[in-house]
């Protein structure tokens, strides 16, 4: 009988579960890309426009601290650029890239006045619910390069996660 009482108390203790806090969800739904100088290996500022395959936006990655997404549409036969409501934080040495969760790969096109580059990445997407009071959680894993045209590129972080500061390093 005493053993059963101890088991009962143990089960009661186990049933006291803590309440989930949405802020402790480590999932990230974008890619952190950092730019480096190929000679010195130091962080490097970069400025260009880029587009993502499947996205209606084109992003202006200026050498200031924000990235402005723009969406192009056609009005009376003319292409019009519509800025999005949000900007993406940056410090010109890194960029946060959207990833298409409904596809197995996403291709990014980077353009400056003098050069063009592309980068295609493969990954596994995973949606989950951290807690029913939170928004959906999205994480990408097994991130890998399919193709790219940069001088050098490495993937130190193969999972998008708040604990991981860099997913892709691009050397220019």
């Amino acid at each position: 009988m005493k053993k059963l009482i101890f088991i009962l108390i143990g089960l009661l203790v186990l049933s006291c579960q803590d309440i989930e806090n949405c802020d402790t969800d480590d999932g990230l739904d974008f890619l952190i890309v950092r730019f480096f100088d190929r000679e010195t290996k130091e962080p490097k500022s970069a400025g260009f426009r880029f587009t993502v395959d499947g996205s209606p936006y084109r992003w202006v990655f200026a050498a200031d601290t924000t990235i402005t997404p723009e969406r192009t549409t056609t009005v009376d036969g003319e292409e019009v650029i519509i800025p999005a409501d949000t900007t993406i934080e940056s410090d010109s040495t890194f960029i946060l890239l959207p990833i298409n969760s409904l596809a197995e790969t996403t291709t990014y096109f980077f353009d400056t006045d003098t050069s063009s580059h592309l980068m295609e990445l493969s990954y596994d997407a995973s949606y989950s619910i951290f807690d029913e009071s939170c928004v959906r959680s999205l994480t990408f894993s097994n991130i890998d390069t399919v193709q790219h045209t940069f001088d050098s590129l490495s993937i130190p972080g193969r999972v998008t996660n708040r604990q991981i500061g860099t997913n892709v390093e691009i050397y220019l």
């Binding site: 499947g54 209606p56 936006y57 969406r71 959207p98 969760s101 619910i129 999205l138």
Partner: peptide, 16 residues
């Protein structure tokens, strides 16, 4: 699970 949002690919309905 279903929701509507813009993940950088335009606003669309996600039904998983």
């Amino acid at each position: 699970m279903a929701f509507v949002e813009d993940q950088g690919f335009g606003e669309q309905e996600y039904i998983l």
